[in-house]
Design a protein around this nucleic acid. Structure first.
Lengths: 206, 206
DNA sequence: GCCACCCCATGACGTTTGTCATGAGCAGTG
DNA sequence: CACTGCTCATGACAAACGTCATGGGGTGGC
């Protein structure tokens, strides 16, 4: 069971402070070695292709491309590389997106470094790990009751744009937009579209 | 100039991963010693009172009370303790609030640990340090053009509440609320109150 | 082939907003 | 004291929004 070959890890996080500190802590684990670091999505991808790590530990929010996008690309271009997401704000939607992208581990940054190391090993062994708290949130949030168009229109309404603008951007008539907005809001149980957007965001439906 | 007594640091961050990693990295600096760690605002305050650090390094977003609130309390209860804020999302408003609270250092988490150590020393020496990028943002954002009431009403509008509800919560007539909302939006240059809220948030005016 | 469900649209209706004019009371400033 | 600026209010009008009924076209299941 003792690994003859160390477990090669890629670390991607745009916050230098955290990335560096994390690298230092993971280096204390004898069976782990950080072979590459990246500060952005594209950089993470490039580094992964260059260094072929066993596990890629990706921050969710990075400039260029977020963790899930990187994981998706990685799955296509480097299928042997397991991916996992580490994040500060664990919202249900992110978790769903991540799992759909083939991510095998999803943990909040509130775990300890030792625990993270364990999870890296778990993921490398082919198992999955999802933070229990986050999993519970995702389950309680349930599946989105919104249809594809409802979600799309709601997303376009996110920055407070008027109906006319949404209609133009979605290539729909204004009446249709209002219908979708109305039904989306009633499904969510919101008084108006703005609170609907907020709630849908929280539940990961957009 | 060589410190006979090591510089005592308090570390407060709700993300265990980061806090632990940071503590490990700062421990590598010979003249620094992390005397206490905290994972929430109230805990940070309690730890500070118990261990009387020279410098308190506070994360901006923590459960219970954010970094700036802790800094304010600390200023009152432990005037000799210098405070500094470390944050992921450096928005102009936060910086302003922090400086007003007597915080002497404000840095994003994109700096390296070595750099952070330097800044801790700078702050301890009685100087101030503000990340140049953040400072530039804050200056370009300018001062808030909003009156007290305008800002208050705008804040109540933040979660998408209808005018009637805002009026009730602010104990104002609906007409007055609409007037304030209207003038606030026009000062900010927004089409409606929702984008006004968003922009005001970004610029730190609410 | 019927039925359910989504997509898209239109028209109509009442409500909510945004905007403007106007004015009173009340600071602080020159 | 005159002046300026903030606060709060009212009334009125146009525009934007939310809601409902209705209908045609499409896809998938039973």
């Amino acid at each position: 069971m003792t690994p003859e070959r160390p477990l090669r890890v890629l670390l991607a996080d745009d916050e230098h402070l955290i990335r560096g500190a994390l690298a230092a802590l993971l280096a204390l684990e004898e069976d782990l070695v950080v072979v590459a670091e990246a500060a952005s999505g594209p950089e993470a991808l490039a580094m992964a292709l260059a260094h072929r790590p066993d596990v890629a530990v990706l921050d969710l929010q990075m400039p260029g491309a977020d963790g899930v996008k990187v994981a998706t690309s990685l799955r296509a271009e480097l299928p042997d590389c397991r991916t996992m997401i580490v994040t500060s704000h664990g919202r249900p939607g992110h978790l769903k997106r991540a799992l759909a992208a083939g991510v095998r581990g999803f943990v909040p940054k509130t775990v300890s470094a030792r625990r993270l190391a364990e999870i890296i090993r778990t993921v490398h062994a082919g198992n999955r790990y999802v933070d229990p708290e986050l999993a519970a949130d995702a389950i309680s949030a349930g599946d989105s009751p919104l249809t594809a168009r409802e979600a799309e229109v709601l997303e376009l309404a996110a920055d407070g744009a008027p109906v006319a603008e949404i209609a133009e951007r979605a290539s729909l008539s204004q009446g249709t937009v209002r219908n979708y907005l109305s039904s989306a809001a009633s499904k969510i149980g919101a008084e108006n579209r703005h609170t609907a957007v907020r709630l849908a965001r929280e539940r990961g439906w957009v």
